[in-house]
Design a protein around this nucleic acid. Structure first.
Lengths: 341, 341
DNA sequence: TTATAGATTGTAACCGATTGCAAATCTTTT
DNA sequence: AAAAGATTTGCAATCGGTTACAATCTATAA
């Protein structure tokens, strides 16, 4: 037996007052006397009243929903990000709806449209591989709906970015390899279209240049950065003459896949080839030797992005922050300790 | 310059027809003539009309939102599940909102309440460790809002469960260890409150019994199943006399943590101790030796659960399915091949 | 030509809240 | 006791759709 929904009208009728007063009381409007206020709350409790968000949203033109668009959900990093977003959003009374672009520009466009039609109050986005421009977010900008990009970002004067200093992190990683004695350093990365990859590539080049090591195009291996792609990259590396003595990979999963394949081929790590990854995925402490990597704090990225978005929604002006750079650091483990071994 | 929202009234006015006709046309009601229909769609496009979900929801009392409550988001398995849910839901025009219980009963109760107040059309739930009963879902049952449990389930006559046959999977896993020659098999698991753990324990016991191996309470190690908990479990194992010769872990992450710690202590795997895990997390192919494990198809679990829920929402009666058991299988890798080594 | 069924469109109530403005009630002051 | 001011409360419009029912139009048959 389905009980009918209780509305403010039912409460009003029962107490013989107007629905306006009930509405005000339930919204803690101080104009309502404590006495009626109490009567209303008691009645609401007793009758099992619950707010109808649609009626409210319809009136207030707000949804209390934050949209999240990510390339993929199935990585440790992204899970951590989402976890951070959810935590903050939830604590502030916002709900999140999530969709995946599967790294495809057109799906991202479709997702953005859906989010727009769902009238999200704000949007958190990590761009797909494929995305050539961000015109599909124009409707949001036009309506002053805040959009924050994280991790995979694009510059836009009416949005904030949340990320780490990829160039510097990559620089540190590469420099570390050089200091461990590496001279022929391969960089495995994705097609450098997105900031995360171009910046890491730039950091890699900078470190080389600073140590007077000539950059070689053939040392940049383009890959999809999955674990299995790491194995494919290993193939390529094994065919290089002379063999590289260090590898900096833009992602731990791929690094690990590559290490496993190289080890199978008899390469010793780090003696023959030293490795540095990126992200500090838990798998870094499982592979042998443990992987030196850049700690990329996913949970915090998500939490900060969400916090910032909500601040905007609550009135903080957009221009106060342009981009937010979180700390990252190199965690040195055995995969790169050439000198000590 | 914020452009104002276009409503069906604007379209109606412009075309000099009634809003009712506009509404019908936009909803593909065949009663509207093709001619007016076309005029309406053209005008809607041109004017940049977008549906107001709240107005519709307010009227139709439907939200097209599916709620998802999970213990944690940060595991590969759960990411895969969410990915599956999102895919199916999206393709059917549903949105999902996600919240985490952080393995706590009270947070789960709060989440359920939020979902209820958000008037989700249906709910997908994986229960927290902690959850002692599912009374907090009664409001859903009472209102005939479908609830589907997956992975961590509880029996209830008005809900469907989606999961694998944990008992059988555990039985196969343990049997495999026995057939590889193990006699003293440890089982690392969580406090057996949830089905997944009790069932796996039962499967473990069954396999032992069937092979006339006496069950020993002290061989069941209770843990939180994180990677670091695996290391703690390794401690305990190292203190056992005589040393066990096989370990069946209820989760790959923990198995891996345990293996790494044991190896550090000089234990050879699988020669001294053979390992079988659970889930087929990607890390299973990174650890050395590669981990034998039960393949638990997360993506499919999510997709099937979502598909089923949506079928219910579209009218399929609830009683047609009571629980859905997906296939799982043992993937044998080197961590358990005692006989071959 | 007219009755009639069938196709199309319009009218208006309804979903459940919010809120500006007016009205009523209660206090305080003279 | 009446006037003025401060508190509370109520009225009614509004948000943007949906849909039962009535009204109108069109085409075909008698």
């Amino acid at each position: 037996m389905l009980q009918k929904e209780v509305t403010i009208y039912d409460i009003a009728q029962k107490l013989n007052i107007s629905s306006a007063t009930v509405s005000r009381a339930l919204n803690d409007d101080p104009v309502v006397s404590k006495k009626t206020r109490k009567r209303i709350f008691d009645a609401a409790d007793e009758m099992g009243y619950r707010l109808n968000h649609f009626a409210r949203n319809l009136r207030s033109q707000k949804t209390n929903i934050i949209g999240v668009i990510v390339p993929r959900l199935n990585s440790y990093f992204m899970s951590a990000v989402i976890s951070g977003i959810e935590q903050v959003a939830n604590s502030e009374g916002y709900n999140i709806i999530i969709s995946q672009s599967a790294e495809q520009w057109d799906k991202e466009i479709a997702n953005a449209k859906t989010m727009f039609n769902n009238r999200v109050d704000g949007l958190l986005v990590s761009l797909a591989y494929d995305t050539k421009n961000i015109a599909h977010f124009e409707p949001f900008f036009k309506r002053n709906i805040p959009v924050i990009f994280f991790d995979r970002v694009e510059e836009h004067n009416s949005s904030t970015n949340v990320l780490i200093d990829n160039k510097r992190a990559a620089y540190e990683a590469t420099k570390h390899l050089i200091e461990e004695g590496c001279k022929r350093i391969v960089h495995i990365t994705a097609i450098p279209k997105r900031n995360v990859y171009t910046d890491r590539l730039a950091g890699y080049k900078l470190a080389l240049a600073e140590h007077k090591i000539k950059f070689k195009e053939e040392y940049v291996v383009i890959s999809n950065l999955g674990q299995e792609d790491g194995a494919k990259a290993a193939e390529k590396i094994l065919h290089m003459q002379p063999l590289p003595d260090g590898v900096f990979v833009a992602n731990d999963n791929c690094a690990v896949g590559c290490m496993v394949a190289l080890k199978k081929a008899g390469i010793r790590i780090p003696q023959d080839i030293a490795f540095v990854g990126f992200n500090n995925d838990p798998v870094a402490t499982v592979v042998e030797p443990n992987l030196t990597t850049v700690n990329y704090p996913g949970y915090q990225i998500g939490a900060v992005a969400a916090r910032n978005l909500i601040n905007h929604l609550k009135g903080a002006p957009m221009y106060t922050t342009d981009s937010i750079i979180l700390k990252s650091e190199l965690i040195i483990r055995n995969s790169s300790k050439k000198s000590a071994s």
